[in-house]
Amino acid sequence: MVAARLLLLIACLFFSALATARVMPLAAPVWAELNARQHEVLAPLVDDWDGMEPVSRRKWLGISDRYDRLSADEQARIQRRMRDWVRLNPDERSRARMQYRAMQKLPPDRRSNLHAEWERYQNLPPEGRRPAEATPAPRRPGAALQGQVDIFR
């Protein structure tokens, strides 16, 4: 009787794990498992792909699915930037995403002019790029960034 109960318990756990495994793939595919189109779109990532986290690989697969809906300019931009993006460290990527989200909250007229503003900013000498009023040193990591992000809210 005890053996039968144990067997039943093991069977239940086994089948529940099996059912979940069918729903959720445990790992994203390695480079060799991608199809020809994915190889073509994600070519800049070939050297980094197999070392990426599964979440990142699944994200890039999602981006490759969107790729054909992008304009030619956007396709060219994403191809140029892919490799640089994956070579950033996680903090830099996180900071870029946060700053991107904050800039999306700018008024439309300012947002449409951002590229020109960036050009102008880049042409300034380093001392001209910094705000005139010195901001106090952040007490915790990300505090300074948080303050800058807040200006767009």
């Binding site: 992008l70 931009r77 900071r95 700053q99 790029r129 901001t135």
Partner: peptide, 30 residues
């Protein structure tokens, strides 16, 4: 991640603009 990264990587502004922490403050001051 897919939505933000796809938008960021196809944006007119280069990645450096989103990594430069002085740029938003300069924009505000400007």
């Amino acid at each position: 991640l897919e939505e933000v990264d796809a938008a960021l990587l196809t944006d007119e502004l280069p990645i450096d603009a989103y990594l430069d922490s002085d740029f938003p403050a300069w924009l505000q001051q400007d």
